[in-house]
Amino acid sequence: MHTYSMDVAGLRRELPICKITDDLYIGAFIMFGDAELTVACARELLKLVPADSYDYMLTAEAKSIPLIHEMARQSGAEKYFIARKGPKAYMPDPLHVVDQSITTAAQQELYLGRDDAELIRGKRILLVDDVISTGGSMHAMESLVDQAGGIIVGRAAVLAEGGAADRKDIVYLEKLPLFNADGTLKG
């Protein structure tokens, strides 16, 4: 298996290169289980988005949950929100949107409980993700915040993959290239 060596938040990691389609491969950036990386990425992202610029943070389940939790811990935030992949029994009358992500073959749905939506109404929301690629997950989170009546004040990610690195509406720590089947960078 090919890997891509990358420095993120002052730490070097080897990302396995994984097939998405016959002509598209990505470097798999997984923070699950890597406490050192999660703490460092949260610290560096918080330098880009001061705590007084937003009221709450929101992310989509599941890969960026450790990141948003650590960002909340480091910033002293008492609450953050997670858009879930399915409705839960504890979610009263949930809001719901459909999401298409580069790493998910089929469409997935995101849900936010009406109780969380009430807390978001009129508040400044920072959207957080581990990797922004096509922007599908970010767009779905934007739709949930819009439905809830929140105000999106920022979009932050650890990595911007491919063309996402050219976006002016996000802050991120590093660019992540796309790859060919042989592990070389896509031109």
Score class of each variant (00 low, 15 high):
Tyr4Thr: 07
Ala9Gly: 05
Arg12Met: 08
Pro16Ile: 00
Ile17Gln: 10
Cys18Ala: 07
Cys18Lys: 15
Lys19Gln: 14
Ile20His: 05
Ile26Thr: 08
Gly27His: 02
Gly33His: 05
Gly33Ala: 01
Asp34Cys: 05
Val39Lys: 11
Cys41Ser: 11
Cys41Met: 09
Arg43Asn: 13
Lys47Ile: 05
Val49Gln: 03
Val49Lys: 04
Val49His: 09
Pro50Thr: 12
Asp52Glu: 15
Tyr56Cys: 03
Tyr56His: 08
Pro66Ala: 02
Leu67Ile: 04
His69Thr: 14
Glu70Pro: 06
Glu70Ser: 13
Met71Val: 14
Arg73Gln: 13
Gln74Ser: 12
Gln74Cys: 15
Gln74Gly: 13
Gly76Arg: 03
Ala77Arg: 12
Ile82Trp: 01
Lys88Arg: 10
Ala89Ile: 06
Asp93Leu: 01
Asp93Asn: 10
His96Leu: 00
Val97Pro: 09
Val98Gly: 01
Ser101Val: 08
Ile102Val: 10
Glu109Tyr: 14
Glu109Ala: 10
Leu110Ser: 10
Asp115Arg: 15
Asp116Asn: 13
Glu118Tyr: 00
Glu118Leu: 06
Ile120Val: 15
Lys123Val: 01
Lys123Asp: 04
Arg124Thr: 00
Arg124Val: 00
Val131Ile: 10
Val131Pro: 15
Thr134Leu: 02
Gly135Tyr: 13
Ala140Leu: 08
Leu144Ile: 07
Gln147Gly: 00
Gly149Leu: 05
Ala157Val: 03
Ala160Tyr: 04
Ala160Met: 06
Glu161Tyr: 00
Arg167His: 04
Arg167Glu: 02
Arg167Tyr: 05
Lys168Gln: 14
Ile170Gly: 04
Ile170His: 12
Val171Cys: 09
Leu178Asn: 07
Asn180Asp: 05
Ala181Leu: 07
Gly183Ser: 06
Leu185Ile: 15
Lys186Gln: 14
